[in-house]
Each structure stands twice: as structure tokens, then as C-alpha cells.
């Protein structure tokens, strides 16, 4: 798309790579990621910023990418779920814990949930069960009843680094 009055060129570092694109001002970041860059691991589960399926990290903190314009993310550094597995496809420790504890069923909320768990552990590396449940207030899971997600996070508590 050529840049016009209502479009902008944006440059965003995504998963360590510098990506540029021309977007309409109204383009949501989540659509830029999914549609323009093909990073479909970030999902859209609602339209009122409740569900958290679209959670990514912008400049190191978890954000709902459905509530950010791509133009607003110009110049930012973003990590999506695809950025957590290195070239070998090896899962990160949060992802491994989800696998070990059966903390996902349909998998739709999972990428956003994983991003939120990382955020939670960065802020509080050793959360109690209550703190885990409170810390995941921005994500809805309809399959697991949260039980095993909480178990997965508990297994990570006090382990230290988030990566």
C-alpha cells in the first residue's frame, strides 16, 4: 500500500527483526501483526479489551494489541508468541510449564495467556496462588477453568528468570 494522507509508514522491531510497513492510521496493531506480517499466533477474542487473547509485549510490558494502533507502536520493540521460541523451535520455560501442566485446551487464549504470565512473573517472581489469579485478570480462558494454568505458574514461581 503506498503512503497516502491517511496512511503512515511504521517501523517496528518485532521479535528482534526490524519490520516496516505502510498502514492506515486506523490499523490496529493486532491486525498489522496478523494480516500484514502473518504473525497469526496473536489472536483476537473480543472487541472491548477484555479477553487478553491479543496480548503482546511492547517495550517489555504486556499490552493488549487490539487496543493499540499500529502507528502508535511506530518505533517500539515488540515480542509476540512467535518470538518466544528460538530458531530451534524450543519452547520457553513458561510454554514448557503450560505443556507439563496441561494448562491449555483449545489453545486460542494460550499465546496471550503466556504473555501475561511472563508479565506477572517479571513483576512478581514468586507469586502466591491468589496473586497468580489476580495477575491473570486480563485474560479469559474458557476451556481450562484456569486450574491448570495456575498450577503451571506455581511451578514457575521462585524459579527466577522469565525467559
Amino acid at each position: 500500500m503506498p503512503a497516502t494522507a491517511s496512511t503512515r509508514e511504521v517501523t517496528i522491531e518485532i521479535n528482534g527483526l526490524r519490520r516496516t510497513g505502510t498502514v492506515e492510521a486506523r490499523r490496529l496493531l493486532v491486525h498489522f501483526l496478523r494480516e500484514d506480517l502473518g504473525l497469526t499466533g496473536t489472536h483476537v477474542g473480543c472487541d472491548t479489551s477484555q479477553c487478553g487473547a491479543c496480548t503482546v509485549e511492547i517495550d517489555g510490558v504486556a499490552v493488549k494489541s487490539c487496543t493499540v494502533l499500529a502507528v502508535m507502536a511506530d518505533g517500539a520493540s515488540i515480542t509476540t508468541i512467535e518470538g518466544l521460541t528460538d530458531g530451534s523451535g524450543e519452547l520457553s520455560r513458561v510454554q514448557k510449564a503450560f505443556h507439563d501442566h496441561h494448562a491449555l485446551q483449545c489453545g486460542f487464549c494460550t499465546p496471550g495467556m503466556v504473555m501475561s504470565v511472563r508479565n506477572l512473573l517479571r513483576e512478581n517472581p514468586n507469586p502466591s496462588e491468589r496473586e497468580i489469579r489476580h495477575g491473570l485478570a486480563g485474560n479469559i480462558c474458557r476451556c481450562t477453568g484456569y486450574h491448570n494454568i495456575v498450577r503451571a505458574v506455581e511451578s514457575l514461581a521462585s524459579e527466577g528468570s522469565v525467559a
Binding site: 479489551s49 487478553g52 496480548t55 511492547i58 510490558v61 504486556a62 499490552v63 493488549k64 487496543t67 493499540v68 501475561s116 508479565n119 506477572l120 513483576e123 489476580h134 495477575g135 485478570a137 486480563g138 485474560n139
Partner: peptide
């Protein structure tokens, strides 16, 4: 802040 919205919203 702890009781306001959720972590992602608070970050933004």
C-alpha cells in the same frame, strides 16, 4: 492501581 482493570490495561 492493583484494583484497577487488569495488568495489560494498567501497562498502557
Amino acid at each position: 492501581a492493583r484494583l484497577l482493570a487488569d495488568p495489560q490495561v494498567r501497562n498502557r
